[in-house]
Design a protein around this nucleic acid. Sequence first.
DNA 1: CTCTCATATTGTGTCGACAAAATTGTCGAC
DNA 2: GTCGACAATTTTGTCGACACAATATGAGAG
Lengths: 205, 205
Amino acid sequence: MILRERISGHQLPPGSKLQEVELAEEFAVSRSCIREVLGFLEQRRLIRREPNRGAVVVRLEVGQVFALYEVREMLEGLCARLAAEKAEPASWQDLIEIFDGPMERYVEDADVSAFVTELDAFRRRLVAAAANPVLSDALDSIRDQTKVIIRRIIVLPGRMATGLQEHRATLAALRAGDPDEAERCARANIRSAKSFLKRFEAYVL
Amino acid sequence: MILRERISGHQLPPGSKLQEVELAEEFAVSRSCIREVLGFLEQRRLIRREPNRGAVVVRLEVGQVFALYEVREMLEGLCARLAAEKAEPASWQDLIEIFDGPMERYVEDADVSAFVTELDAFRRRLVAAAANPVLSDALDSIRDQTKVIIRRIIVLPGRMATGLQEHRATLAALRAGDPDEAERCARANIRSAKSFLKRFEAYVL
DNA sequence: CTCTCATATTGTGTCGACAAAATTGTCGAC
DNA sequence: GTCGACAATTTTGTCGACACAATATGAGAG
């Protein structure tokens, strides 16, 4: 849906009031449909609705962000582990080549958008290889909520280079078919992102 | 909500068709409200809705159950770890006494309902102590989906006694303020439940 | 000029009705 | 007797309208 993108991409800033009639006109549908999607977004914790007072885009509190990252570390770790267990080691070769070649240049050129595009492709492959719909859903939900944070972290000084190294380590473990190491690397990556976040907390949140 | 209980408690068997007008009459509300709650239940994966074809209670496939347990193992482990990190070790004393005394008798008497009542209290305390709303939500969602499975596992021969020992080990780790051990025990407990499930798969699923 | 209370306005919650789609039942042909 | 097509019924999807709650506005008193 369009709204989901708009919110998780922060085209709508936190605290924005989402009025039903307004949205209904914009998308040329009835309020019923709008209310349905608002319910969906509320479940996903992208908006908050108070009875008789309407819906607002959630403002991420510091505590909430770290709570998300605590869970995310676990889930990404499990995802890497399952991917290592279930996928053919050779199937990661193409990604390894991308992360050894082009990605290196994206970091040098500070080409953030190309970097995150490839990164997303890698994540999608991981999730697909893990072949666990429950995990997939949970990660999706968390990713929606942290999308903005992720975008802010990746532009922090040195983060792209660090992240690239960590993803390379994960890929190496996957290539070697080593689930333990894959999990460890994936978790280390999230922990590292968390530490960047903590260090630059004042600038990001 | 009532419907949530009815579905996760399997008063409505899997495959049941949920018709909107029918439910609307039963609860004396409009179809709009029913549709809203159906949307909620769909998000929670308790029902499945196909366009223009209505809603049915989901039938848990074997693969889905193990997918749930893979994620649940992680989350329960994280929950125990956080609880050990954040809560006062002494605060677990009352639970230890319950699990040493009354629970022992419930197992001997095969008093399942009393057993699960105390177990739920323990789980609630764990989640509260972990103080992570994201984790709390994720566990809630998974627990809703696996409620029936849990009820079927716990009556398997020897499961109550085994589970009790495992929970005692977790409590001991919490009492000792040892996050690593708490996580290990909590995960071992879920893995053990999973192995029971695997062994008696034909009788449970 | 400021504070308070009554009123007006705005926006959400709920409802019933209409339209579209799918399922079921019936009739006819082979 | 069975298969297929058409019609009728049932059920969901969408819409506009009404009712209620919350907030904003304005008038009057201190």
